[in-house]
Structures are given as C-alpha cells and as structure tokens.
Computed example of a mutant assay.
Amino acid sequence: MEIYIKYLLVGLAIALPIGAITVEMTKQGLKNGFIHGWAVGLGGMTIDLTLIFALYFGLASVLSLPYVQMPLWIIGACFLALLGYDSIKNADHDITLAGEKPTKSFWSTYKNGILVAVSPGNLVFWVSVFGAVLSESYKSAHSGSFIIAAVGVLSGILVHDIGLLSIVATTRKVMSKNMIKWSSIVAGGLLFIFAGYFIYEFLNDLIKYIR
C-alpha cells in the first residue's frame, strides 16, 4: 500500500503540468462535456499503459538512442502543429452547450486522445518521465513492485483527469459558444507552443550529436 500511495502521488505530480493531452482534454470537455473530455484522457492513459509495459520489456533503451530520438522529436513537432492548426481552423465546429446533446461520438474523442498521446515526441517525453519515476521499482527483485508502482502512477493520472474535468464541466455551464470557440483557439496556440518545444529538443539533441 505504501508503494501504491507513493506512486499515486507521483502520477498526480507528473500529470499536473499542462501538456498536449491536458490541452486536448480541456478543449473537448468544454466543447462536448465531461464524458468527451474524459474519453481523451482515457485514450492518453491507454498509451501510458502501453508505454509502461514497453518499458518493462526494454523499449526505453531503444528510444534513448540519439539517432532514434532526434527524428521522433521533429515528427512529433509536425504532428502537434497539425493538431494545433486543426483546433484553430475548426474552433467554431462541434460545440454543444451544457444541456445539449453532443454530436461527436465517445469513440471519436477517445481516438483523439490516442492520437495526441502517440505523437512521437510525446512518446519520447513520457518514456523519459516513466523511466525516471519507475526506475526504482523496475530494478527491484520483485516484479510485483513495478506493477504496483505502475498502477499507482496511472491512478494518479486518473485522479488528475477527473478533477480537471469536474472543473471544466462546471465552468462550461456559464460559457457561451463564442467563449468556447476562443478556448479552442487558445488550445490550438498551446499545441503550437508544444510543437516549438519539440523542435527545441530536436535542435538541442542535434547540436550535442554534432559535437
């Protein structure tokens, strides 16, 4: 139980900083309500769970190679930039106010969560994070420790998602379509910023590789 609580808090801590998933989750929560925002979060957690198993079987050592990481950063930047462009271009599409029935399906927003989380640059970032926070349990002689730690991290992310979307769902009740539209535009801008961060990481790795 002590290991679980420890890594639940770790999962909550690493989920708190605003990331691409958080931006998409908030945008969909504002546009289509709690369930659709949560669908994005569940899509992201599906990738998180897959990465945890991949870490256990040695994927981290492959992604840590410079010539593997570098192209992933730049591809990820392009991917997030396209998502940002789509968010701004379609800012006034698929908006349903509180009390209205969403036109978008649950599985459509779930797929969005997977697509954001599977961005190559995002994969490198999260593998690095999970590699750091789970390294202690990963090296343990008891494989059960790793599993408990992994469940704790995912539980922390789930607590963050539900808490965030509860706030979003409450805020949405007093927002007009125009306000939600501008929230989507801001979300697109933030995705462009994350794309810029990935480009920065690519250039940083390229400089180190050349030297």
Rank of each mutant, 00 (worst) to 15 (best):
S87P: 09
I88Q: 14
D92A: 12
D92G: 09
H93S: 10
H93K: 14
H93Q: 11
H93G: 03
H93A: 08
D94M: 09
D94E: 14
D94L: 11
D94C: 06
D94G: 04
I95A: 10
L97R: 04
G99E: 00
G99D: 00
G99C: 00
G99V: 00
T103I: 09
S105H: 09
S105D: 09
S105C: 08
F106T: 02
F106D: 01
T109Y: 13
T109P: 12
T109G: 12
T109L: 12
T109I: 14
N112A: 12
G113V: 00
G113C: 00
V116W: 02
V118P: 03
P120I: 08
P120A: 06
G121A: 05
N122H: 08
L123S: 00
V129I: 15
V129Q: 06
G131R: 01
G131V: 01
G131E: 03
A132S: 12
V133M: 01
S135C: 07
S135E: 13
E136F: 02
E136P: 02
S137K: 10
S137L: 04
S137C: 07
K139A: 12
K139I: 04
S140L: 01
S140K: 00
A141V: 07
A141Y: 10
G144W: 13
S145D: 14
S145V: 07
S145G: 02
F146R: 11
F146G: 01
I148S: 00
A150S: 15
V151T: 14
G152T: 04
V153A: 01
L154K: 10
S155V: 02
G156Y: 02
G156K: 03
I157P: 03
I157Y: 05
L158M: 13
V159N: 06
V159A: 14
H160D: 02
L165H: 09
S166A: 15
S166F: 14
S166Y: 11
V168N: 02
V168T: 07
A169M: 10
A169F: 06
A169H: 05
T170P: 02
T171R: 09
R172P: 03
R172K: 08
M175T: 05
S176H: 09
S176P: 10
S176C: 05
S176I: 06
K177P: 10
N178S: 13
M179E: 13
M179P: 04
M179V: 12
I180K: 04
K181S: 12
W182R: 13
W182A: 10
S183Q: 04
S183Y: 09
S184D: 04
I185L: 11
I185K: 14
